[in-house]
Simulated scan of single mutants.
Amino acid sequence: MESTHKPSHKPRKLVLTILIPIRWGDMDAYGHVNNTLYFRYMEQARVEYLESNGYPIIPKGTAPVIINASCTFLIPLTYPGNVEVKMFFGAPGRSSIPSSYEIRLQGDDTLYATGDSKIVWTDMESGKSVPIPEDLRALLSEM
């Protein structure tokens, strides 16, 4: 089964590519990686990117929070293999950053899934959105 799905053509910048091993236990009764794991793969990419740029994921002060997430499952992933997750950022708003993802198997150009999420910088005490930190905005403005 070959995918004809095309990733979004909105302006975006590739910010990270990671590899994650598929574990035997990631598969479900249908013999493929359970759908919930795709969201974990995208989450891991977000966490690695933010933490590598000095934004630890801790629930105090101001922090990034996901307000929505979606995934389009194109072709089932199966054990064994390594998942390649490419993470992209779109243009930031005042307090939010759109992110998108492409999921493939390492060594295979076939697109297995795509995803999107919106990251909102939030004051953890009030629960209200706050402006994206200026140094992160500067990093993102290089797009």
Rank of each mutant, 00 (worst) to 15 (best):
F89D: 00
Y38D: 02
F88H: 00
T17S: 15
G61M: 05
M1K: 09
E2I: 13
P80F: 08
F73I: 07
K60W: 02
M87C: 12
D116S: 13
P59R: 05
S141T: 02
M27W: 01
L37Y: 11
G54M: 07
P98E: 04
R40L: 08
N53L: 11
Q44W: 03
P21W: 09
L74N: 15
L74R: 12
I103K: 07
A69L: 06
H9A: 14
M1V: 12
H9L: 11
G31Y: 03
D123R: 08
A63L: 02
Y38W: 12
I132M: 05
T36C: 11
S100Y: 06
E2W: 09
D108A: 04
R12C: 11
G25H: 03
G115Y: 04
S129A: 15
L74H: 14
Y112N: 06
S3K: 09
T62E: 11
L139H: 05
G115E: 01
V85A: 00
K86W: 10
D109C: 14
P92W: 02
V85F: 00
P133E: 03
L14G: 11
E125P: 06
V47L: 10
T122V: 14
S96E: 05
N82G: 12
A91S: 14
Q44D: 13
G31N: 01
R137Y: 04
I97Y: 02
Y101K: 10
L140D: 04
K86G: 09
S100V: 04
D108K: 07
S126M: 04
M42K: 01
E134A: 09
Y55D: 11
E48T: 11
A138F: 09
P131S: 07
L14R: 14
F89C: 13
G25Q: 00
M87A: 14
P7T: 10
T62I: 03
T114N: 08
I97F: 12
P21V: 08
T36G: 13
F39C: 08
G115W: 05
